[in-house]
């Protein structure tokens, strides 16, 4: 059983999150600010931290930076600001993921699950020679299987080919037209309109929040790329 730590100054949000997390079978500890969180972390074994950013006393950013000095426990930031700079600052300081207020509880649970899977399998999976990976997405080209944070994902052959193309060139932007040419192996002739639909499906299968992807990103007006957030 995993133990999670909820750090938020709002008691109502803490207890709501506790209800969801205990419902999923996790043990829960609570802290109302960064100092308390660091204290609990030094006393007990914690497997995941949910950290609010704006708190009295010590804020979430500082607490994250402090706990990163001696721990690699997964941290998910809870932020009221939806500005990109805050997200990037949080990820750079050592957070692993973030959710924006007002958050959807199901999204929080999905992110907690993903981070715990990653934390549990750290170093455990043998690196297959033909494995392509980006973040939690792994593709075994020999077995034709794709896993997301250890969970197998079933893809159609077209989706598989598109994902392989993007995984082979992480960070490179492909336009719909290029993807069509490389995957279908024929001239697009205005048929590339299907590519975004497939990409959308891929995002729905691989991303927790498909509207705000962390890996399979849309570069609007240019194309698509596969890249880890904050890296």
């Amino acid at each position: 059983m995993y133990t999670t730590l909820i750090c938020d100054d709002e008691p109502d949000i803490r207890s709501a999150l506790r209800i969801y997390l205990t419902g999923e079978g996790y043990a829960v500890r609570e802290a109302s600010n960064g100092m308390e969180a660091l204290e609990i972390l030094s006393r007990e074994e914690i497997h995941l931290v949910l950290m609010d950013i704006m708190m009295p006393g010590m804020d979430g950013m500082t607490a994250t930076a402090k706990l990163r000095q001696h721990s690699n426990v997964p941290v998910i930031l809870i932020t009221a600001k939806s500005e990109d700079t805050d997200k990037i600052a949080g990820l750079t300081l050592g957070a692993d993921d973030y959710v924006c207020k007002p958050f959807n509880p199901l999204e929080v649970l999905a992110r907690v699950r993903a981070q715990l899977r990653r934390y549990a399998m750290l170093g455990g999976m043998p690196a297959a020679s033909s494995a392509l990976r980006c973040g939690g997405i792994r593709m075994d080209d020999e077995g034709k299987t794709v896993t997301n944070w250890g969970e197998e994902v079933s893809l159609t052959p077209t989706e598989y080919d598109i994902l392989r193309l993007l995984l082979q060139h992480p960070g490179k932007v492909f336009s719909s037209r290029e993807i069509y040419q490389k995957v279908w192996r024929e001239a697009p002739l205005s048929a590339e309109g299907t590519v975004p639909v497939h990409i959308r499906h891929l995002r729905e299968k691989l991303e927790i929040d498909p509207a705000n992807p962390r890996y399979l990103k849309v570069v609007w007006g240019k194309g698509y790329k596969l890249e880890e957030d904050g890296k």
Partner: peptide, 12 residues
């Protein structure tokens, strides 16, 4: 940007 690409993306 290529507006054509963006319209295609939005359509998708």
């Amino acid at each position: 940007l290529d507006l054509r690409e963006l319209v295609t993306q939005a359509g998708g």
